[in-house]
């Protein structure tokens, strides 16, 4: 019996520590944006740099109000929308992010590379609520396996700056 006491105490402490130190922190977006309901719009209407720039970008209120003269309904309250429509910055979280030492350009991949957004971002466009983590984890092996497949550069210095 006694030989179980120590492991059990350790397990309990780890569990408590886990909860205290690492609370589950899904990235909450400020607005319950619904991609599926916006399927009729082109991605670049909102993500303006996705085919012409390095960064895709996430739209601010001036883009939303081009279509939404009034509150769009859904999960967002009238009052909250008034604040947004008046031009207050929407603090969107960027979920897919690369470290500073990696060079990545959207234009290179969606332009000459002719890749679909889904090949790197999965089913984001069909989601009915914002994902709480990057839909596809883009790590070095993800980049490299496609580069190998497509015959693109595998030189370290091409991606690392």
């Amino acid at each position: 019996m006694r030989r179980y006491v120590f492991p059990v105490i350790v397990a309990v402490l780890v569990a408590v520590g886990w909860v205290l130190v690492l609370p589950p922190a899904p990235m909450a977006q400020p607005i319950a944006f619904n991609h599926a309901k916006h399927a009729s719009a082109a991605c670049v209407l909102c993500h303006q740099g996705a085919t012409t720039g390095v960064r895709a970008g996430i739209p601010q209120a001036d883009t939303c109000t081009r279509c939404h003269a009034t509150a769009p309904g859904g999960k967002i309250s009238e009052a909250a929308w008034t604040g947004i429509a008046s031009g207050r910055r929407i603090a969107w979280q960027r979920l897919t992010r690369l470290p500073d030492h990696v060079a990545f350009s959207h234009r290179r991949h969606t332009g000459p590379g002719q890749l679909a957004c889904a090949s790197c971002h999965g089913d984001v466009a069909q989601r009915t609520a914002p994902p709480d983590r990057a839909p596809v984890r883009l790590v070095m092996t993800t980049c490299l396996s496609c580069h190998t497949r497509e015959g693109a550069s595998e030189d370290c210095a091409g991606c690392h700056r």
Partner: peptide
């Protein structure tokens, strides 16, 4: 390392 185009590269995270 010496990259294929003759530039001596330095990969900082490495």
């Amino acid at each position: 390392y010496l990259n294929p185009e003759g530039i001596v590269a330095q990969i900082y995270p490495r």
